[in-house]
Design a protein around this nucleic acid. Structure first.
Lengths: 219, 219
DNA sequence: GTCTATACCAAGATAGAC
DNA sequence: GTCTATCTTGGTATAGAC
């Protein structure tokens, strides 16, 4: 059975305060939708306001310029995306209570919940799109997402090595990188397929298969 | 010691015939350079012709429109990029003569030679850039590069399983995917770092480390 | 905070002389 | 195959009335 995608109802402003103005909220919704399809440069203020149902000039009462719209989108994304990282203050606890497979399965589940929010998936597409032309997108992807994920799980793995839950000739960070690189590559394909309306079954199977392969490799 | 990047001297036309006209060649050089930095949409005909040293109108004697420039760049890329795949008619031979580690090391070496051509690296960036807005870029990346690479090496692995060079409880395609996904993710980071003028030592180390990890996992 | 009107600019592209 | 000149479109943004 297909689960209906959730959407974000209310966005945060650049200063992370909730946006109370309905029009400003709608502008962000529309901008995210259009940017995710045609990229930031490929979408004009005219198109956004046309879809929202206001005139171009009205938009400038809500945002100083076009760039500020993207700033706000990125700010909202960062707030949401850090939630998929294992919280730093529970790393010790996780390493003690769980086994490697449990950590990976839980992490994947968290991530799947995150990515099955339609608004989030659209912003993921925007990030991918801007990866090579916008340093902010690059920073969010490579630093906030990839490196931090590898790092935190790397610390968990390192503690597990000490606890004898993983082989002690390995290095926690290296194991975490080995595990996560295929995950991020597969997630990218997952996003592409979802966007194109194709089936993601194969990718989900591969993600599960990857956990199996990895667990076997470190057993 | 730093090896100087090579560049392509002469491009092919859309119909794959070598381009004899020096100006047309220069337009492609300049376009690739600018597109790799600011994306296809971010670069105007004016900027290209300004750099080349001709007027806008002159460019249209060489290309029918802006899109044809990108068509030509993609055509050149496809011709070069298929050279990094293991040739189909030698797959049997490779599986028989080499061991798994040899295949992977040779493949990585081939790829590194390819990517150390500056022109190619620039086009890789253009491909990444257009991945989510241009279906042609998506096709080249996911179909021509990723899927074909995984598939051909998967066939080699499958034959190696039959020959007892790899454990027979595994599947060749799955093993190839497990090996290659981290490679493509690392290569993407390699390209980003190169572009930003940063050191790629860490990534090259990880690529070698990944071969070690993988070989150990299937031994 | 919405509108109308408008300024201003840069984009892709073409006509026609040389 | 290069140039000058020009066209047309669509982009971001602002001024000022309501």
């Amino acid at each position: 059975m297909m689960i209906k995608d959730q959407e974000i109802e209310q966005f945060l402003d650049k200063d992370l305060k909730p946006i109370m103005n309905a029009t400003k909220n709608k502008i962000l919704h529309v901008a995210i939708d259009l940017y995710s399809q045609r990229g930031y440069r490929g979408v004009s203020i005219r198109q956004i306001t046309g879809e929202v149902g206001i005139k171009e000039s009205s938009l400038y009462k809500h945002f100083q310029n076009k760039g500020e719209i993207l700033d706000t989108i990125f700010a909202n994304f960062e707030v949401e995306v850090v939630k998929i990282l294992p919280p730093e203050d529970r790393i010790e606890q996780i390493a003690g209570l769980m086994d490697p497979r449990g950590v990976l399965e839980r992490g994947l589940q968290n991530f799947m919940n995150h990515i099955n929010n339609l608004t989030m998936r659209k912003i993921w597409r925007i990030i991918y799109n801007e990866l090579f032309s916008d340093p902010r997108a690059r920073a969010i992807y490579f630093e906030t997402i990839i490196n931090q994920t590898i790092d935190r799980v790397g610390v968990i793995f390192q503690k597990m090595i000490v606890l004898g839950k993983l082989p002690n000739q390995e290095d926690g960070q290296m194991l975490s990188a080995e595990y996560h690189y295929p995950v991020f590559a597969l997630v990218m394909e997952y996003n592409v397929l979802k966007f194109e309306g194709k089936s993601t079954e194969e990718i989900e199977k591969r993600l599960k298969g990857h956990i199996d392969f990895f667990i076997k490799a470190v057993s």
